[in-house]
């Protein structure tokens, strides 16, 4: 009697567990369906080429071209990578191969704290500290007369890249550190035995061996940077023009959504959802390339 009851229970619970595991499939399916179902018709109503390659965004006149925002997102992300990857990677190398245990006891929690700071706090910090500082630097004679950078603005591609570069540091550091730590000690020792210095062994033996881990760190960083919203809105200036240079403002896809969504109606609102769909496609592409890199890592 009791065995049968517990048997039924076993079977039922097994299915409950399986069903729970399928929730993530369901969630992804729902997200895809709802975003595409809402975004694609708009895309075709506006015209895919007009929407994706149009350079003018004037919702008041039903002109919806998001090329400036697509480029804006790409530029800001590239800028964040230029700032974040060298610092993050070198920090990871330091933590993995140079720092003593005592130093790591401080560094590790510091990196975790950096990851935990909410993006709205980052954005606020960027708005009240970074923007005025950069504005002040751009006003100096040195920048204007010697470097010939005139008319630079505090709210710019540069500021956004800098802030995002800081924000992706934890991702870059933790992921590359994990892969650096995983490199067998024998590689390093072999290099030392051949007469290389500690630094040379780390940079030319350990680092290349962790290549694919570093690559996935960069890809994850790209994903984080391109999807960041609240921080970018506060520092990027959000002009609807085509990006004009390092020290001029621009608008990303995410900020386009968050700035105008609360205020939009009808086709304008749908066009913003379509912007979200384009962003989502970018993210999916990044995810796919991440899995490919991981797959290669497994096979190697």
């Amino acid at each position: 009697m009791s065995t049968r009851a517990s048997n039924t229970k076993e079977v039922v619970m097994k299915w409950v567990f399986t069903a729970c595991a399928c929730i993530s499939i369901l969630a992804v399916a729902l997200i895809c369906i709802f975003l595409f179902a809402n975004g694609l018709p708009t895309l075709f109503k506006i015209g895919p080429l007009k929407f994706l390659l149009g350079t003018t965004w004037k919702p008041g006149n039903d002109i919806y071209g998001i090329l400036p925002m697509i480029l804006g997102s790409i530029y800001v992300t590239a800028g964040a990578i230029v700032v974040g990857v060298p610092i993050g990677l070198l920090t990871a190398i330091y933590m993995s191969r140079f720092a003593s245990k005592r130093i790591n006891k401080v560094l590790l929690p510091a990196v975790q704290l950096l990851a935990g700071i909410p993006s709205v706090v980052y954005g606020f910090f960027g708005m009240v500290v970074l923007v005025p500082s950069i504005q002040a630097v751009l006003k100096t004679d040195f920048v204007r007369k010697t470097l010939h950078i005139t008319n630079g603005k505090g709210m710019s591609l540069f500021t956004a890249s800098l802030l995002l570069g800081i924000m992706i540091l934890p991702t870059i550091i933790t992921v590359s550190k994990t892969s650096l730590d995983a490199v067998p000690q024998s590689y390093y020792e072999g290099s030392l035995a051949l007469g290389a210095t500690h630094e040379r062994s780390v940079f030319f033996t350990v680092l290349p061996a962790a290549k694919s881990g570093v690559l996935s760190a960069v890809i994850l960083g790209i994903g984080r940077a391109i999807g960041e919203t609240m921080a970018v809105v506060m520092v990027a200036g959000n002009q609807t023009w085509m990006p004009q240079g390092l020290f001029q403002g621009l608008r990303t896809m995410t900020s386009n959504i968050v700035i105008e969504m609360g205020y939009a109606a009808d086709l304008h609102r749908e066009a913003l959802i379509a912007t979200g769909v384009v962003l989502f496609v970018f993210i999916l592409l990044i995810n796919v390339s991440f899995s490919l890199v991981k797959e290669r890592e497994k096979n190697a």
Partner: peptide, 20 residues
């Protein structure tokens, strides 16, 4: 002008003007 910086709040406008 497309070169106008966009702020989505009164405060955003005031902070930017006060700092620039």
């Amino acid at each position: 002008s497309a070169g106008a910086a966009t702020q989505n709040s009164t405060n955003g406008v005031m902070t930017t003007v006060a700092n620039d």
